[in-house]
Design a binder for these strands. Structure first.
Length: 423
RNA sequence: GUGGACGUAGCUCAGCUGGUAGAGCCCCGGAUUGUGGAUCCGGCUGUCGUGGGUUCGAGCCCCAUCGUCCACCCCA
């Protein structure tokens, strides 16, 4: 044997036992998004590095130390996307989708961040990314979360809490930032090292600190909610009213600060207590300035990203059942005539019954061996074909999950029997 | 990037104060030459993560390295 080539750290293979769960998540998500008028778009996984640097923010952790960046053969600086919004906006502008138009769009696929892997955090991970463009009012903010509440219900998960906050306009945020920095500077001694560092790079993140000492200081800090401009305040109030109307429960979390620079006004996060430290399953917010920042016409926008690995983990944790993917029937063949006839029978069944999952034993052996495999496959029934049956155009119909006797029936009748199990 | 725990068969794991590697599951064969499940019998599989070092001798001790997990940081 040759030398083994190991997989890349933090990048997972999603194995056949796991894919039914992923399909379930994708299928349900697709249906809910369609019900709200969202259309799928597919964009490249690689973009120019500049796109992410400009949109996410030069001084964010993502851009400073987490991106998979490289030079291609032409010397262009490219990056594996660390998030989807920048590419979606770029594609929207490139293709004229965002000019004076309302668009409800979504995409899904892999994202890449060079972080230390842990539970719910990987270097290649997958997101469903949803974006609404051209809508400035709080009703779309609310609708997105109403839609998410419906999605959670459809997926069968309940251990999620909605947290909301507002960051105001860039102008108010800047003013507030100043106040905040001044306040923290007065209490510098009480701040931990990380928080001191953040004071220069991203002071609002200090509000999110988990260090007890720092938390005490944070409690006395000025709140952004008290320094909002009137319009942002009204927007946030209306957003909450609409959530109330829909019976969506939420908690205002003044410390909720998104890590990406482009967020404005409404931000939100659906969190769970069931997944350890990486508790945010879905989060997003408004980014009214991003389209313009990337060279488009000023366009209000709001969106969110759902972490698929985290959602899959939550579904597992909550014991959501997975659709059965075991074969409906397992065909065993013994004898030269039966072997040939069996393949014809299998094709007839598949033609007559779209959706039928039929496995033909091609490993050989006597009836005992093949039936053992039939049982292991999880099939409901074994179709038993020997030369005797083949000559008479019949097949043994042997239920494997109850004690019903095997019967010999015509091929046509086999179609009718199996039809009941195929949707 | 920081800290801690852990890497032994395909999987889950045991392996004593350092003495030449084991169990269960899985898989394969048989009991059962046209019939699965339960039971019984037999069998296969190991760069002990990798590379060094200490030692007469290393799965065990030391160093380095890679990986996994958990937490920090950050975030989906």
């Amino acid at each position: 044997m040759s030398e083994l080539i190991p997989p890349i750290r933090g990048m997972n293979d999603i194995l056949p036992d796991a894919t039914p769960r992923w399909h379930q998540l994708e299928t349900v998500t697709r249906a809910v998004l369609a019900a709200y008028g969202y259309r799928e778009m597919r964009v490249p996984i690689v973009e120019k590095t500049e796109l992410f640097a400009r949109s996410i923010g030069e001084v964010t952790d993502i851009v400073e130390k987490e991106m998979y960046s490289f030079e291609d053969r032409n010397g262009e600086h490219l990056t594996l996307r660390p998030e989807a919004t920048a590419g979606m906006v770029r594609a929207g502008i490139s293709n004229g989708l965002l000019y004076n138009q309302v668009q409800r769009l979504w995409c899904h696929g892999p994202m890449f961040r060079h972080e230390r892997p842990q539970k719910g955090r990987y270097r290649q991970f997958h997101q469903v990314d949803v974006e609404a463009y051209g809508l400035a009012g709080p009703d779309i903010d609310a609708e997105l979360n109403i839609m998410l509440a419906r999605l959670w219900k459809a997926l069968g998960v309940s251990a999620l809490e909605l947290q909301i906050n507002t960051l105001g306009t860039p102008a108010t945020r800047q003013r507030y930032r100043k106040l905040l920095v001044e306040y923290f500077r007065r209490h510098l001694d009480a701040l931990d090292e990380d928080s001191r560092r953040r004071l220069d790079s991203n002071p609002m993140r200090v509000l999110d600190s988990k260090v007890p000492e720092t938390r005490k200081v944070v409690e006395g800090a000025p709140s952004l909610l008290d320094h909002l401009d009137a319009e942002s305040q009204a927007h946030f109030a209306e957003f909450q009213k609409l959530l109330d109307d829909s019976g969506i429960r939420y908690r205002v979390n003044p410390r909720l600060v998104r890590g990406l620079d482009y967020y404005t006004r409404t931000v939100f996060e659906w969190v769970t207590t069931r997944l350890g430290a990486q508790d945010a399953v879905c989060s997003g917010g408004r980014y009214d300035g991003l389209v313009e920042l990337l060279g488009g016409k000023p366009t209000p926008a709001i969106g969110f990203a759902m972490g698929m690995e985290r959602m899959v983990a939550l579904m597992e944790a909550e014991g959501v059942s997975v659709p059965d993917t075991a074969p409906h029937a397992y065909l065993v063949r013994v004898g030269a005539e039966a072997e040939r006839a069996g393949l014809r029978l299998a094709e007839q069944l598949r033609t007559a019954l779209p959706g039928l999952r039929l496995l033909v034993d091609c490993s050989g052996g006597d009836f005992g061996k093949q039936l053992k495999r039939a049982d292991k496959s999880g099939a409901r029934v074994a179709l038993v074909l020997g030369d005797n049956e083949a000559r008479k155009h019949e097949v043994g119909f042997k239920p494997l999950r109850n004690t019903t006797e095997q019967v010999s029936i015509s091929w046509d009748l086999a179609v009718a029997r199996l039809a009941a199990w195929v949707q």
